[in-house]
Amino acid sequence: MRTSTPALIAVDSVSSVALTSAARAALASIDRRKRSGISHWDASGLFEELGVADENAGRPSARTLLILYAADLAFRVRWEIAPALTAGRSVVAAPYVDTAIAFGRAAGLSGGWLKNLFGFAPPPSDRRFVEPARRQAAKTGDGFVEFGRDRATGTLSQLTGVEIVDRTAAYLRAAAKRRGGRMLKI
């Protein structure tokens, strides 16, 4: 991507491994002098803290996890994304809003609630959706969807962990079709 205006490139996927590869490729496509970096999930570290919480504290629901995702994203927007754009540099956000919305829809939450939740996030100038190979999607990763799959107490849709990942991927494919984002296969 050779552009003179700063861009926010959103990269979304169910697989953290696929996200990392696609985000690096997206960053490499930007002129070195005009790029900032990659804004990753859990830059704020709050999920890391959540991951070591006592089991007696109770498992979070998918809804609670998504509110926390939004809190982390607000942190990323404030400290990584907005400053880069203000400085005239392009930035890659991997994952961004669509991964979280797809996870929430797969978990049975309403689209209206999810849209409001992420209403503060600036719209990306370019969207890329990454479809991982099935084997890769099933791998244990350390991204948000994997975290949600393993840690959420239960979902409204009452799907298993594997089904949640498949449903999230289906919602992401639908989003790519609707929004006209690029669908990459890794």
């Binding site: 049975g108 409204l156 449903r167 289906a170 639908a174």
Partner: peptide
């Protein structure tokens, strides 16, 4: 976001 059609979601409703 469009909703991919499927039976489990309809059953869940």
């Amino acid at each position: 976001m469009h909703e991919p059609p499927d039976e489990p979601m309809q059953r869940s409703r």
